[in-house]
Amino acid sequence: MPAAIQLTRVSKNFGTRPVLKNIDLTVPKGSLFAFLGNNGQGKSTTIRIITGLYRITSGKVIVLGQDMQSQPIPALERMGCLVDSPSLYNHMTAREFLKIGCVIKNIPYQEIDRVLEIVNLHTEPRLKIALYSLGMRQRLALAHALLGNPELLILDEPTNGLDPEGIKEIRELLISLPEKTGCTIFFSSHQLEEVEKTASHLALLDQGKILFQGQLEEIRAAGRSALLLDVLDVEKAFNFLLEAKYEVSRYGEHQLLVEKITRKEASALYRQLMAADIEFYQAVLEKPSLEQWFSQQMAISRNKA
């Protein structure tokens, strides 16, 4: 599948502080790509680099076949962006605001009705944006991003501030858009439950590095069950498991996480632990949800660091 976004060995420093460290990222065309990571790990920086707001220190950024550092306008013409919290012109009505986008993108005003319909924003026509709720602002910003039927949507926290009903609507909208219009959606989110229901692909960023990128299906199909062990002597158990060549990481004060383990292997492991006189109170074998998978990945990353 050709790439809508291709980052190759991209680094970004603020002064001497590195924020992104040689990241490679490929977002396939037509995908609904979730970009995950804790706050302050470089997520927004990456989004700003993709949208051409930031210059990179080194590497290459290709969006819709265009180099964003030297020729960003042809790509931006085919993109719609919602970066950060929706910053709109408070003294305007929704239509006046969207007119500005139409003028700059050189598209007819009829487009306004279409995008307002898509985001389901029906307000009193003379109501000023200053009086909008956060959810309404978010929808209007999304409508602005949808002007001109973009091939690529970049959305930073699109469900931020929305009520549960609004989150559901946006989720359904995001799922339907690639099918309806063939557009690619690249979005960041902290709501992992929503990501699990929405995304087809995802990437995980931590400390300026991509820890994982691929299809969500890969995580599900990999059967990456994990065994969470609650042990008395963490140090002893940790060393034992390492020597036994298990992929183990510390997980909380008294817990260890043994990764990529099948039911059969887990059974064998119990016997080994008992034979080695390592006491454990509880052992839970589970197929992780995205949230658990996220926590595991973070724990592994921190342990490596």
Binding site: G52, P72, I73, L76, P86, S87, L88, I104, H144, I154
Partner: peptide, 17 residues
């Protein structure tokens, strides 16, 4: 108008420099 609405990023992610 851009400073008070913090709309620089909104404007500068449109097709312009």
């Amino acid at each position: 108008i851009e400073h008070s609405n913090q709309s620089w990023r909104l404007m500068l992610t449109l097709p312009l420099r």
